[in-house]
Design a binder for these strands. Structure first.
Length: 183
DNA sequence: CAATAGATCATCT
DNA sequence: GATGATCTATTGC
């Protein structure tokens, strides 16, 4: 289990450090869904026009200003949920959007290569909003066996209409589960 | 193969 | 009342 201190850093650092880590959801006794994080995006707090928190805290975004290591789950376009992990020390907004997973357990190949698809594959819903990822059913942990070395790619974020030119998207170069063709 | 449309609703103005 | 950190299907070259 990654310690809370792992998340109490700038969102950009956390986004890069999360690549290769394992997202695990314990559905029930003995049944787990798991995937390797292969694509992330950093969202800063105030000042990043693309971030939900850019204007300040609202009822929905208050979790982004709370303690790091918690989940921020929201509904987008009326039909897809997106999973974020709160970064930065408490009181400072910032988070990391998990964009794609490589299947490890209980996930069909290609079913988690996109923000909306991975929440469905992992059965993550809005009830997880505010959940503590350092304990509980949904956790992030170090891979059990070391993964082969990988190269980190950097590109602008996807699907946003503001600050669309900032290179805040991180992905494992050459990985087949990344949501788009290589940059 | 690239571009676009439609689905569908919580949140904020 | 408009908008959006998406996805899939369909239309158009």
């Amino acid at each position: 289990m990654l310690p809370r201190a792992f998340y109490a850093r700038p969102a950009v650092e956390v986004a890069r450090a999360l690549l290769g880590k394992i997202l695990m959801h314990r559905i029930s006794r003995g049944a787990t869904l798991a995937g390797r994080i292969v694509e992330t995006e950093a969202y800063l707090g105030t000042g990043d026009r693309a971030a939900h928190s850019w204007r300040g805290a609202t009822p929905r975004t208050q979790v982004l200003f709370g303690p790091p290591g918690h989940a921020y789950v929201y509904l987008i376009y009326g039909m897809h949920e997106c999973l974020n992990i709160v970064a930065e020390p408490e009181g400072v907004a910032g988070c990391v959007l998990i964009r794609a997973l490589e299947p490890v357990a209980g996930i069909e190949h290609g079913a988690a290569n996109g923000p909306g698809k991975l929440t469905r594959a992992m059965r993550i819903e809005r009830s997880f909003n505010g959940a503590d990822l350092t304990r509980g059913a949904l956790t992030v942990r170090e891979p059990e066996a070391a993964w082969p070395e990988f190269e980190i790619g950097l590109s602008p974020r996807i699907g946003i209409t503001h600050s669309a030119d900032l290179p805040l998207r991180f992905f494992i170069r050459g990985n087949a589960s990344v949501s788009r063709k290589q940059a």
